[in-house]
Each structure stands twice: as structure tokens, then as C-alpha cells.
Amino acid sequence: MLALPVLVRGINNLSDARYCAGMGAQGLIFTLDQQLPGALDAATARELAGWVAGVDIIGEFGHVAGAEINRLVEECDLSGVLLRLDRGRPAWPQGLAVPVLVEVPEVVLTHPDHLAATLADLTASFPAGFALFGEAPRPYATDRAYYHQLARQAPLWLAAPADPTQAADTAQQVHPAGLILSGGDELKPGLRDFTELEAVFEALEEA
């Protein structure tokens, strides 16, 4: 059992989907915005998701209208969305039917005025609920202490460091809502090297 919730981003093959679900990931993130690198079509995402059970299926989008996101939410049976948006205060998609995870730049997370304005915007724009997603803090105690306080202001997900020890330290010292790992490509159909991903999963297991 993992010590905290984990999502895996960039799922594009069945090997990753089944492996991550089996290792205890809470959710799998599929890139469904065709303007983003590595995007999958809805049919492929549905097919991959159909091979796993007991995990959240999340769609990743950039600048896509709320109506189109909601269409794909229904078509792919998504439980949430991850929004990749530019710096500044963008026009948020309107009327989303599911909770959102908003990827925000470091300047928002580390600047009190930017953070306050962003939280106010998100509260007004996403009544179904929202969480923040950003980069993990640097491996210094002062940074982790700051992010720990930030995680008490709003649900905060962090990109998990690739180093297993740093990933475990971030989980233990920051106490975020969860960590987000990155999936990878198969070496060939049905063949995938999980060495690095396995090390991080094992480091996040509860003692």
C-alpha cells in the first residue's frame, strides 16, 4: 500500500496502465488534447482504461473549451481533468462537470499575491472542486517547509522526483495531497522497462 495517493501521467500503452494500477496508483492520466505532445484519441484511451479497474481515469488538456472537455469526460468516463495552462491568469474553461487538477508554474506557488489571486479564480471557476499541481520543491529543508505550509492552504499535488529517496522525502516532509509520476514508452509492443518507476513506487510504500 502506498503512503499517499499517486497518479501516473502520460499513459500511452497497456503495459503502463496495468502495471501502475497493479502497483496501487489511484489514477491514470491520458493526454486527450490533440494539440499536446503524445495525445491519444478517445477510442484508444477508452480501450486502455477498459483493461484496468479500481483506478481514476483523468484526461489532460491545454486550451480546450469547457463544452469539448465535458464531451470527452462523458465519452471516456473521466473522473477528473488535468489542465495544462500558460503563465498568468488565463480564462478558465467554463462549466466543467468534474473536479480539476490545475498545473501552475512555480511563480504562482512561490509568490503569495499570485497564489491568492489564483486560488480566488479557481474557487469561483470550478465549483466541482480543484487542486493545484506543481514541481516538487528542491531538496532543501526551507523549500519543503514552505511547500508543507502551502499544502495546508489548498490540495497540492507535486511532480514526484525521479530519485526514489527524494520522492519519499517529499512525501514525508511536505505531506502533499499526492504525487504525480510520469509514464513511459514501451520498448516494443508488450515490452516495457519498469526499473525506474518501480524504484519510486517501492520508495513510496508504507513501512
Rank of each mutant, 00 (worst) to 15 (best):
P137S: 07
G38E: 05
Q34H: 11
F61V: 07
W51N: 07
L115K: 05
C76D: 05
Q94A: 11
A128H: 13
L82Q: 08
A117E: 11
R89S: 12
R89M: 14
P137V: 06
L28P: 15
P127L: 09
A124G: 14
A49P: 05
P93K: 03
P139T: 01
D113T: 11
W51Q: 11
Q35D: 14
C76K: 01
G95I: 00
W92K: 06
L36M: 13
D121A: 15
L122M: 15
P105Y: 13
L40V: 06
L96C: 02
C76G: 08
T44V: 12
I57V: 15
G88T: 09
L48F: 06
L96M: 08
L96Y: 05
P127F: 02
E103M: 07
V107W: 04
L48Q: 06
G80H: 01
G80S: 15
G59P: 00
G54D: 02
V107N: 15
A67Y: 12
L48K: 07
H63T: 07
G50Q: 11
P137N: 03
G27S: 06
L85I: 11
D33H: 08
P137Y: 02
G54C: 04
A53L: 07
A117D: 10
E106V: 14
G50W: 10
V73H: 01
V107P: 10
G54S: 10
I58P: 01
R138Y: 00
D86Q: 11
R46V: 07
A45D: 06
L115H: 08
L28M: 06
A120E: 14
R84L: 14
L109H: 11
V104N: 10
S125V: 01
L119N: 05
S125E: 08
D33A: 05
D121M: 13
F130K: 01
D121E: 15
F133G: 00
E135P: 00
V102I: 15
G59C: 09
F30G: 10
R84P: 04
F61I: 04
G62A: 06
